[in-house]
Design a protein around this nucleic acid. Structure first.
Length: 898
RNA sequence: GGGUGCUUAGCUCAGUGGGAGAGCGCCUGCCUUACAAGCAGGAUGUCACAGGUUCAAAUCCUGUAGCGCCCACCA
């Protein structure tokens, strides 16, 4: 046959897009693709939906690369495999993006109005969605695009409503006036999990509150980090057992800067040992104070507007000020009144909005909540009973800890972008109506004047239904029946609370079982300094740029290779050359093999008799396959990538192809046919092994292979049209061959020893050298070595290799010791002995000089006594090393001169 | 404060009871007719520190230090 020609270098741009198109046309991403073996269990992943706030970053690159590896692996095992793609509307985050754009045009959402604003947001959603979809395709994601979903799709919105109504009917959704986390900038409530605590260097202020006239003399000192909230104080609390204050409990204080009087109360919440042992109580603006307020029926004075400025409940002078301004003003005024004691630097944790970074204010408002305890119990049960398993396991602690300390979930958001809360209020009788369908009239009074709740739901209220809402729930759809529960969830650890735990809760509640079996928690990607990649730092890496420079396969393979369990990945653009080099290596090895098809006839595998070298490579291949399968079970992507890399590069290329250059360049036509046939067969199997990690490259090469090439394992004569739907290699115990491995291991050892020797004497690579191998009596590999004289000559660049159980007959060689043999290298013949002796002599002299210096140092008693012990030890070691070196070179000289 | 992870070669990291390793970088020599994105060879480590268990410890236990992350209402 004719040689098949490949370009000289790996150039992914030339084929990646073309191949993705081919896959799409072939409908290979479908769970009903031609490879499917109907009796096998389903393998299903639903994508963690990227937010439509922007485009994909490298974290998504990692996440989706790993999902694609799993999907392709299982698909090639013949399992009906489905990967559901989709995106998330990301309520608050997307709304912020749009508002930012509006601000740039001098607009805001209120000027625009709700309807127009939503129109704008849908446009932004479309923009980002288009890019995200293209990015996923670019990196080769083999997801089923016909099943793509969006959290605000009609179907998913129906699921959201259904869930809200069911939970309401069950009494698990309730509405109430509670202290919630309020972001003054976003103008909405947040759940506890959306508050990010950051260390802030603030101040701790000490103030005096004087007693009201006639109550007692003097004052009580209180400490606070938020002076402005004193305007909302309705009590001062002390511990009931605190002797210092016992007599003062019940007395009234005059609240400075206001005309109000507040009581001193006793509450065991107060820590006597902290500060002055007296705490100001602001029920409207602190969760603990709120609790105390309820216990003591204190007044609740809300001093804030929704935008974070002070409202009409404070004295006029402070109204309209921001909390920051008010703080300064209050401190100044208290100082003027002689009530300020001191302000100390104070480091503490302050809550910030996870989306915009604004300081969170505890704020009393009417909100909707989900009662979580009953749901959390079920989610804990799912884990305890082994329905879900975390990889790595230690994330289970994070999961259970959160569930055990679960708090109710505030799900209403004062935003516009999201699922409108399915509650209407009757204008006439004020009855709230919770309904799956938009109601027309009030069921209680019949009034048609209904208004829907203006708030929307937390974005996670739709994401937590993702594994079944995407499959058609609440309809009893075919997909739901076929593909639920899913198999594996691949996600990062930063959303275990937000998403993973909640999905399990909702799924237990509405589906009666966990939504997936395995939870693989990926690493987080950081830059080389260990910083999170972010737009503001400008240290982000665009996956598309990686694809552009190195190719999608290089992206995928590199990330997989670096993806050690439980470790963050520190990476920069250059890191991807690892994958790209590997691709190039595979490309060129293939190029070499296909080139050697010129004039050859491919032999059928059955008619080839394997040599021990062939058995060795099949043994190694089989070992590699076993490791891959084994580690795939436990999601050890790094280990899998490593063994594949090592097998292909070190075993297949460096030894097997190199060894086969002998027959390939020989005269024996039958030998040539034999050698190239086996090489091509093994290449084909290896490509299948590598395909999940290097989908584009392996497909491109697969398509270049001789079209009629049969498959060795499993034995099929008509290869599938695409490697995507070919068979993944399986462990074949018949290929295990420890004996062949040992035999070839001896060849490798002998070759390496001689190469090292050559290198030590700087013998030019082209210069042939004579070698004698003295094998020990009874050494098993002796005849194998002797039988591969020509191979060793090739690999050692030897002019001649002789064998015997005795030493060399002629002098002038230098021996090296191997396992079961000694190799005598006749260095003297290929080098200028005088020059080499002179070189060695010079080195001995040089080392001798260094040795003298070291010895002198060590002979100095004050050095040994006073110098750092480590330094002394180092010197001793240096001495021993120099002595060894000198002895070895002296030996060499003696041998050369014999 | 609670939890959890890390500390191994210049850098990024594997390795969890018996030989200290990989990739990149570095040094030497090679354009050997697949690949210079390559080939052959090499150097580099008190495996954070201190104790303990063991015939044997980078690996198990205890403690210490440093770094990181998560959670938590100390005003």
């Amino acid at each position: 046959m004719k040689a098949i020609e490949l370009d000289k270098a790996y150039n992914p741009k030339e084929f990646e897009d073309r191949i993705y198109e081919m896959w799409m046309k072939g409908n290979y991403f479908s769970p009903d693709n031609p490879r499917v073996e109907k009796n096998k269990p389903h393998y299903v992943i639903v994508i963690p939906p990227p937010n439509v706030t922007g485009v994909l970053h490298l974290g998504h690159g990692l996440n989706n690369s790993l999902q694609d590896i799993l999907i392709r692996y299982h698909r090639m095992l013949g399992e009906p495999t489905l990967w559901v793609p989709g995106t998330d509307h990301a309520g608050i985050a997307t709304q912020n993006v749009v508002e930012k754009r509006l601000r740039a045009q001098g607009l805001d959402r209120h000027k625009l109005g709700r309807e127009k604003f939503l129109e704008e947001t849908w446009k932004v959603k479309e923009e980002h969605h288009t890019v995200i979809r293209r990015q996923l395709m670019k990196i080769g994601s083999s997801c089923d695009w016909s099943r793509e979903r969006f959290t605000m799709d009609e179907g998913l919105s129906r699921a959201v409503r259904e869930v809200f109504v069911r939970l309401y009917e069950k009494g698990l959704v309730y509405r109430g006036n509670y202290l919630v986390n309020w972001c003054p900038s976003c103008g909405t409530a947040l759940s506890d999990d959306e508050v990010e605590y950051r260390e802030v260097h603030g101040r701790m202020y000490l103030f005096r509150y004087p007693f009201a006239a006639g109550e007692a003399d003097g004052f009580i000192q209180i400490a606070t980090t938020r002076p402005e909230t004193m305007l909302g104080d309705t009590a001062v609390a002390v511990h009931p057992d605190d002797e210092r204050y016992r007599k003062l409990v019940g007395k009234r204080l005059k609240l400075p800067l206001t005309d109000r009087e507040i009581p001193v109360i006793a509450d065991s919440y107060v820590d006597m040992s902290f500060g002055t042992g007296a705490v100001k109580v602001t029920p409207a603006h602190d969760p603990n104070d709120r609790d105390m307020g309820i216990r003591h029926q204190l007044d609740v004075i809300n001093i804030l507007n929704p935008d974070g400025t002070l409202n009409e409940n404070v004295p006029e002078a402070y109204r309209g000020l921001s909390t920051k301004e008010a703080r300064k003003r209050v401190v100044r005024d208290l100082e003027a009144a002689g009530l300020f004691v001191e302000a100390k630097d104070h480091v503490h944790q302050v809550g910030h909005c996870y989306r915009c970074g604004t300081v969170i204010e505890p704020y009393l408002s009417e909100q909707w909540f989900v009662k979580m305890r009953p749901l959390a119990e079920q989610a804990l049960e799912a884990w305890k009973s082994g329905q879900v398993v975390f990889f790595p396991k230690r994330w289970e602690n994070t999961y259970t800890h959160w569930l055990e300390g679960i708090r109710d979930w505030c799900i209403s958001r004062q935003l516009w972008w999201g699922h409108r809360i399915p509650v209407w209020y009757c204008d006439d009788c004020k009855e709230p109506i919770v309904s799956r369908e938009d109601p027309i009239a009030c069921p209680k009074c019949g009034s048609a004047k209904l208004e829907q709740d203006t708030d929307v739901l937390d974005t996670w209220f739709s994401s937590w239904l993702w594994p079944f809402s995407t499959l058609g729930w609440p309809e009893d759809s075919d997909d739901l029946k076929r593909f639920f529960p899913t198999t594996t969830l691949v996600t990062a650890y930063d959303i275990i609370f937000f998403w993973v735990a909640r999905m399990i809760m909702s799924s237990m509640e509405f589906m009666g079982r966990a939504p997936f079996r395995d939870i693989y928690i990926t690493s987080l990607i950081r830059d080389k300094q260990g910083r999170k990649m972010s737009k503001s730092l400008g240290n982000g890496i665009d996956p598309l740029e990686v694809v552009d420079r190195f190719g999608a396969d290089a992206l995928k393979f590199t990330l997989s290779f670096l993806s050690a369990q439980g470790q963050d990945i520190l990476i920069d653009m250059e890191s991807f050359s690892l994958g790209s080099r590997f691709c190039n290596k595979i490309w060129n090895a293939t190029r070499f093999l296909l080139m050697n098809l010129e004039g050859r006839n491919l032999l059928r595998f059955e008619e080839i008799e394997l040599t021990d070298i062939d058995r060795w490579i099949y043994h190694r291949f089989n070992e590699t396959v076993a490791t891959v399968h084994h580690n795939m079970e436990s999601y050890r992507f790094d280990d899998i990538s490593r063994v594949c890399y090592e097998f292909f590069w070190n075993d297949f290329c460096d030894w097997y192809i190199e060894a086969n250059k002998l027959p390939l360049s020989g005269e024996d036509e039958r030998e040539k046919d034999r050698a190239i046939s086996l090489l091509i067969y093994l290449l084909e199997e290896t490509l299948r092994l590598l395909h999940p990690f290097l989908p584009f490259l392996t497909e491109e090469i697969y398509q270049k292979l001789p079209p009629f090439l049969p498959v060795v394992q499993p034995p099929i004569s008509a290869r599938p049209a695409s490697i995507m739907i070919s068979h993944y290699p399986l462990v074949d115990s018949a290929r295990e061959n420890v004996r062949a491995a040992a035999l070839f291991g001896s060849v490798q050892e002998a070759v390496r020893l001689v190469r090292t020797m050559r290198s030590e004497f700087t013998v030019p690579p082209g210069q042939r050298v004579r070698v004698h191998l003295k094998t020990e009596p009874g050494f098993e590999a002796a005849s194998f070595l002797a039988g591969h004289r020509d191979l060793m000559e090739l690999l050692m660049t030897a002019s001649e290799v002789t064998f015997s159980e005795s030493g060399p007959s002629a002098p002038g060689s230098i021996p090296v010791v191997g396992t079961g043999f000694e190799a005598y290298v006749f260095i003297r013949e290929v080098i200028d002995v005088n020059e080499q002796v002179a070189k060695l002599t010079r080195e001995i002299e040089k080392s001798g000089g260094a040795l003298t210096a070291v010895e002198r140092k060590l002979a100095n008693p004050s050095f040994v006594a006073k110098a750092d012990e480590a330094i002394v030890a180092k010197e001793r070691e240096k001495k021993a090393e120099l002595e060894r070196k000198i002895a070895k070179m002296t030996d060499y000289i003696r041998e050369l001169q014999t």
